[in-house]
Every structure is written in C-alpha cells, then in structure tokens.
Simulated scan of single mutants.
Amino acid sequence: MEFRRTARVAITAAATVTAFATAAPVIAASASTAIGAALLARRPATLFWSAITATAVSVSATCLYSGGDDNRTGPWWFAETVALCALLFGVTARLPVTRALPAGSALLAATAVSPLRLWLRLDPPSPPGELALLTALWTASGLLAVGAGLYRRGHARRRAGAIEAARRAQRVALARDLHDFVAHDVSGIVVLAQAALHVGETNPAQAMDALRRIERAGLGALSTLDRTVHALHTDGPAQPPAGLDTLTELLDRFADTGSTTAITSIDPSLSGLPPAPAAAAHRIVAEGLTNVRAHAPGALAVRVTLARDGADLLVELANDLPARGRLGLRAREHGGLGLAGLDELVTALGGRLTAGPDADGGWLLSARIPLATGEDRA
C-alpha cells in the first residue's frame, strides 16, 4: 500500500514538472491539479475537496487560456480531461449522494465547457462546428464516467446486500441449530435438575444419579455448541447436516435425560436417503422430542416412526396421554423457532407438516416429505 502511494506521488510530481516545462502555464496548472487529484485522493473527504479544487482550477484555465506554446499544450489538455473523468467516476461511485451530486455536477460542467478554451480568448477562435463537436465529445466523456460510476455504485450496493443476506442466513441457520440440538439437551438438563430437587432430601442416591446424567447431557450440549460455533469460523466446506445415522444418539440422549420411554420404528429401507430429507427428519425428531419434554412431561412413552410411504418419507412422533404429578419445564420467555421453523423447512422441501391431538388423546406430530426433492430430481 505504501509503495502504491509513493508511486502515485512520484507520477504526480513528474507530470507537474513536465507540464510546466512543455505547456502553457494555465494548462499546466489545471492538468497537474486534475492529475494529482485523480491519483492521490482516496478517502471520501479528500476526494470531495480534491474534486472541488480540480473543478475550480479547470474552469479558471478555461476562462484564462489565450493560446500559445504550440501544439505541446494539446496532450496536457487531453490528460486533464482524462483525469477529470477519473475524478468524476470516483465521486459518483464512492461519495454519499449529498456530496456526489454537487461535486459530480461541478466536474461534469468543468469537463463539458473546457473546449471553450478554443473560442473565448483565441484569435481567431475555432469554427463553431469544430467547437460544437468537441463540446459534445467532452460532455459524452463526462457522462460515460458518470454512467460507469453509477454502475460501480450499484454493484457495490448489490454486493453489500448479498453479504448482509448471507450473514442473515448464517444467523438464522445458527439459531435453528442451537434451537434444534442444544435446546434438546438443555431441556433434558432442566428436567433432571427439577427431578433432583424433588427427590434430593428423600432419595439422595436418585438425586446423585440425576446429577451424573445432567453432567453427560451438559457435555453433549457443549459438544453440539462447539460444533455449531466452529462452523462459523471455518472457511472450508460446511459440515454435513445431521441425518438418520445420528438418530440413535439423539434418542439415547432423550432417554438418558428423562423418564419418558422412546419407542422407535425406523424402516431399514430408508438407509442412504438424500441429504435434504434425512436432515429434515432429524430436525423433526429433535424438535418433537424437545416438545414432548417441554409440553408433555407426564408422557409415559413417545413413538417415533420413520417409514417410506410411496414416494414420500413419513415422520411421526406420538406421545400418550400425559400422567399427572410429573415435573415439567417452566414456561420460557422465548420458545425458539419450534413448529413454525419446522413447517417452513418441510414446506421448502415440498412436504407437509401437521401437529395436533390424536385419536388416543395424546399428541401427534407428523411430516410427509418427498424423497426426491427439487435438487435431487435435478
């Protein structure tokens, strides 16, 4: 970075010395000012005032130039025009609208009127047709610089929007992972802690057993949290989503952190499912088990069924009529993504999610997901 700045300063100095040695002083001053502003102005505040200064010097040169110094002045006038267009591009692309509008308008006007140097004080002046053509060409050059700046500005805005959208999607994915997996373990820890408090005085051995199970569940929750946070700091490919192969571990943790029995029925033909429906099935089971613990703490058993139904994957969780007198989770202020997040996920895969009382008086969570999702069919 320092080398680039040194090079720009050296180019500006060399251009200034050469311009005053070969061109009319007025043109040399305006050209060197415009070149220096285009090369050295990088910060927005510096860019604004450099543009204003270059505009003032250029307009002054247009008003004061009276010819002379043969044709060596022409290239410096052209160099000044290129530098003014570069400044116009930078002002349009980088400055806030409140500053880009006045500075850009002034630069465009200075560029457009610079051909008047061939008419105002020259004797004889340039023919009107030649002057009109040069004015049109210089104006078009300025407008092209404005157009390029606007395109760059829009591209930067779209890029910033895409980055923000990606960050938002990442935050949503993190929140979903934390809710689906960590909340499952933490809710079990809460149930075990409540149970330990309930039996601590009357049955210390059972309370100690609950504390050991709390320790295992807490370590599992920390491991899940570590994996989730680690994914945010990894530049490589994302870790594959949890699927049916991790359901056994999930159900074991559920059984280890509560008294509700999980009765599992998984169709063997479901091995090798596509990643999208397999990950969705894992999330549905995790959310369903968490809801059983949170909202039906008295349930004696929960039936977890995964089966192939034609071209669909059927996932069902049904808990029986809750018994009385069991401990449950106290109400939380924020319940996480829950069924609304599951419904959004299943719908995105072309499936359907239902939840409500079943015929036996318990609660049934059911999801039907096409085994061939959009990307799998492609």
Score class of each variant (00 low, 15 high):
V82L: 09
D69N: 03
W77M: 03
P25Q: 11
L87K: 03
F20Y: 07
L47S: 05
L88C: 13
T62N: 12
N71Q: 00
I35L: 13
W76I: 10
A29Y: 06
T92M: 12
A54N: 04
F78D: 13
L40Y: 04
A34R: 05
S60P: 10
T98H: 15
R43Y: 00
L95W: 01
S66M: 10
P44T: 05
G36L: 01
R99P: 10
C85N: 02
Y65A: 08
R72N: 14
S32K: 03
A56F: 12
T73D: 06
A41K: 01
W76K: 04
I35Q: 09
E80H: 01
L39C: 07
W49S: 11
T98L: 15
E80N: 03
L95D: 05
A21D: 08
F48N: 05
A21E: 12
V57Y: 08
C63Y: 13
R72V: 14
I27V: 13
T53E: 06
S50P: 02
N71M: 11
L64H: 14
G90I: 07
I27F: 09
A23Y: 02
V97I: 09
L39V: 05
S30K: 01
A61F: 00
A93V: 14
I27R: 00
R72C: 12
G74W: 07
S58R: 01
S58G: 14
R42N: 15
L39T: 02
A93H: 15
